[in-house]
Simulated assay, not measured.
Amino acid sequence: MRLGLQVSHFSWPGSPASIGPTFGRIARDAEAAGMASLWVMDHFFQIRGIGPPELEMLEGYTTLAFAAGQTSRIELGTLVTGVTYRHPGILAKTVTTLDVLSGGRAWLGIGAAWNEQEHRGLGVPFPPVRERFERLEETLQIVLQMWSDDEGPYQGSHYSLDRTLNSPPAIRRPHPPILIGGMGERKTLRLVAAYADASNFFDIGPQGLQATCEVLRGHCADVGRDYDAITKTVLTRLSLSDTGGPAPSGEPTVSVAAAVDKLGALADAGMDDAILGMGNTTDPDAYPLVAEVVRQVSGITAAGRSGR
């Protein structure tokens, strides 16, 4: 199992001047701890569940580009881009640019979008859910065409491109991996089976994750896709400490042993990667513990703990 880190909270003491140095240190600490990937939300207002919309929020791809300059190995992506936020051709160009400048470390994380408040606030059209999914599928087709040798036109119901030119091309081959976020059984998981290299699920517990994987397996069978070729990732909360005290966010912390047990259970449920939301991302003392967790879970495989 590989571990990633999602940073979703930027309201740190001394902001805004402190945000750049603090986030840069988080990126470097995550990489030094052996984490495989670094993710930020693609939002413009802070989201419910984390804080009020007035809290600090950074634009995702600018943030990832900054992280690319602070690191050399860790992979970089949004968890996840709302399909409504950027024209598909511009999105493909943006992710390609991140991939080129980072030396082949970019992901495209994408979903159907949901936060109507920030759409209305910033004047971004927010079509009905059915149309958002139609746009998501067309966007997936467009980015895959732009990451191929075909620079011809694209004509869909919602998007029309005269020339899908993308120069320079991405470094990653065959293209930056595509991760689709969401757990909708009829639409989202069907798109994962048809287009994605990875899925991202919320941590709804091992039984729920196993059931979701079985639905995805069925969609893969329907389209003739190898289920095992899709990386299953899960976003979960996990803050580490060796004292057992609360994280700065107020949430409880756990020991390395407890973290390994939790991640092992997620692997048994079919998860290949776990992306951690940590309540103590700014604490340098947390990252040696993260490194030990990375070491212990590196041999755990999805649906089996043979490496333990």
Rank of each mutant, 00 (worst) to 15 (best):
P13T: 10
T164L: 14
A27D: 06
V7P: 09
P206T: 09
T236W: 00
E116C: 04
A269D: 11
T188H: 12
A259W: 02
G89N: 04
V129K: 11
L266I: 11
M271P: 13
G82I: 06
S167H: 10
D149F: 07
L101N: 05
S249E: 06
S72Y: 00
G20L: 14
H219K: 09
R217V: 03
G270E: 10
A286G: 00
L289H: 10
S18G: 04
V124I: 15
L64N: 00
E59F: 02
D273A: 00
K93R: 15
D273N: 14
H175G: 02
A269M: 14
N280H: 03
S255L: 01
A17H: 09
Y195I: 01
R225T: 10
V290F: 15
C220M: 07
K232Q: 06
G205N: 06
M35V: 01
G181R: 08
I19S: 05
R2D: 15
L108W: 02
A196S: 13
S239I: 08
S8D: 11
L91M: 14
A65E: 01
I180P: 03
L91V: 05
T62D: 00
L216C: 10
V100G: 07
W147D: 06
Q207W: 04
Y159K: 08
I50P: 00
S160P: 00
K262L: 12
S37K: 02
P88S: 11
F202L: 14
G304L: 04
R190M: 02
F10S: 05
D42L: 01
V143A: 03
H87N: 08
H9W: 15
G24F: 05
E59H: 04
G14F: 12
L76V: 07
G245A: 13
R25E: 15
I90Q: 08
P284T: 12
S306E: 14
L276T: 04
V40S: 02
A257I: 03
I110W: 12
V80Q: 03
C220K: 11
T281C: 07
A265P: 00
D285W: 09
L191Y: 13
V124E: 03
F45P: 00
D261Q: 15
R132T: 06
V129Q: 13
P125G: 10
C220A: 14
F23T: 03
T81H: 11
P288R: 02
M41W: 14
H158Y: 11
L165Y: 03
F126G: 10
S18V: 10
V7C: 08
P288A: 07
V143I: 15
G307D: 01
P88G: 01
E138D: 11
A30Y: 08
F44V: 10
P168V: 05
